[in-house]
Amino acid sequence: MSIFIDDDTRLVVQGITGRDGSFHTRQMMEYGTRVVAGVTPGKGGQDFEGPGGERIPVFNAMDEAVAKTGANTSVVYVPPVFAADAILEATDSGISLVVAITEGVPVLDMARAHAFARDKGVRIIGPNCPGLISPGKAKVGILPAQIVAEGPIGVVSRSGTLTYEAVFQLTNVGLGQTTCVGIGGDPLIGTNFIDCLEAFEFDSDTKAVVMIGEIGGTDEQEAAVFVKERMSKPVVGFIAGQTAPPGRQMGHAGAIISGSAGTAEEKIKAFEDNGISVAQRPADIVGLIQDVLK
């Protein structure tokens, strides 16, 4: 099994005709993801050519794409100016999952989009995230497929490339993954650590979870308590940003130590206090996972 996406995922790509959208649509299709539609306003009626010569219909709007193709998931590669609208449109179109890759969406736009999605019961992952992959089943987003393998580990992370780092090392020692989720580096994200941990807890194939956090906010601290109180499966953690100075935004809009809150130290302590093994460096994650699986 896996979480959030699997063989039944029918994907519509918002922004399919852009540079990133078209490149990654082909990558997702090569991995075997069922891409059933694309949406680019003004380009409805065109076809998008897949890597094997497949013709994917492009629509002007999400409702039409969903009605004509039965899509149940969308991925957003739309530029930041239009991204929040694209997310809202997807949320209103009858699908159940919106994966927002776009970086740079104004946070107040996202506050509105998240509120709207909560009302509609739609899950948003991201924005400013690499998406997710369920090895052997489907990939939605930009994670490089060559580094994953099928197996028993769940991976959840606020970072993109740091996730690749961890996943690559797991795969190299033969530890495949059920699903790898990048939840995004923005302050307001749709799916948080606890949502993913809970899904992994209920996923019968997941035997252990890797949780990769970073400075800023308290999501990791709350997730640590959740692990202790509600999870039977072992969790291994890593926190990036031990050398980050306070008050400075470290790339991700959400990666900032505000006053004295949200430091790596505080998060590592929360992990340790709640029974999560903490890796000192990314290369230690594998060893800790092997230990907890014994």
Partner: peptide, 14 residues
């Protein structure tokens, strides 16, 4: 990537 950039800094220190 921001996360990897922070982890790289941390590893330099390590």
């Amino acid at each position: 990537g921001a996360g990897l950039a922070m982890a790289t800094m941390d590893l330099v220190k390590y």
